[in-house]
């Protein structure tokens, strides 16, 4: 099958709303969205702490998070597989292996360093006196914290987008702890791999197009929102 044929068939599949492709797309969105959300909920407070305090070893902690950004997904996937492995793994009793939940947890761990690093930089870039300013205008401790976060919003947005992109595009974790089971843990990336293995180039191409359009589209939309705000 040549590229053009594949492309045409792929577009046909997408526009006819092929139920399997819709399902895989929605699951991918849900899994990477949840992973990003969890990573943000944990990562932003950590970033807040790192960005606004000074302590011995802060540089080391930041360096560790920065280097974890590049953690190979395959290594993390394998490591998590060992942990979630039902009988030998320390968390095997949870029965999470080969569930979407396991992928969510794995991807959240994968992208958390991105959130922490980028958000820390964004928060560090905010004038340290913004918290004092908010307070003197009447803000309580938490309202002042929120004011600082809002000043760092652009950077935090970027952290979120970068995390989501990494989560939705990764394969290692999804393969190892998800096992690409059809209708259960199959995602866009694992779907592409599987369909190429099965020589269904058109389906693989359809999934790849969706993945690219989605990553591009989400970035575009968020950038437009950002620009309008300016």
């Amino acid at each position: 099958m040549n590229i053009l044929d594949g492309l045409l068939k792929a577009l046909q599949l997408i526009f006819s709303g092929d139920p399997r492709i819709v399902e895989i797309t929605l699951r991918s969105l849900f899994v990477s969205g949840s992973a990003t959300l969890i990573a943000a909920l944990w990562g932003i407070p950590i970033a807040m702490f790192l960005g606004r305090s000074n302590f011995r070893g802060k540089f080391l902690v930041k360096t560790i998070f920065t280097s974890l950004i590049g953690i190979p997904t395959v290594a993390l996937g394998f490591f998590l597989f060992m942990i979630f492995s039902r009988e030998n793994g320390p968390l095997g009793f949870l029965g999470l292996l080969y569930t979407p939940t396991a992928i969510i947890i794995g991807e959240a761990i994968l992208v958390a360093p991105i959130v922490v690093s980028l958000a820390t930089s964004a928060i560090e870039a905010v004038d340290p006196d913004v918290a004092s300013l908010a307070k003197t205008l009447g803000a309580s401790e938490s309202q002042a914290t929120f004011a600082v976060l809002r000043e760092a919003l652009d950077g935090i947005f970027l952290a979120g987008i970068a995390s989501f992109n990494r989560a939705i595009g990764e394969l290692g974790v999804a393969v190892f702890v998800g096992g690409f089971i059809a209708h259960v843990t199959e995602l866009l990336t694992t779907g592409i791999k599987l369909e190429i293995d099965s020589n269904n180039i058109d389906v693989a191409m359809a999934l790849a197009i969706i993945l690219l359009v989605m990553v591009f589209g989400i970035n575009l939309a968020l950038n437009l929102v950002q620009r309008r705000k300016k």
């Binding site: 949840s34 959300l37 969890i38 909920l41 939940t101």
Partner: peptide, 11 residues
């Protein structure tokens, strides 16, 4: 809470 909700809910 959110983590438990998402993890537990999806599970």
């Amino acid at each position: 809470a959110a983590t438990v909700l998402i993890v537990g809910g999806s599970y």
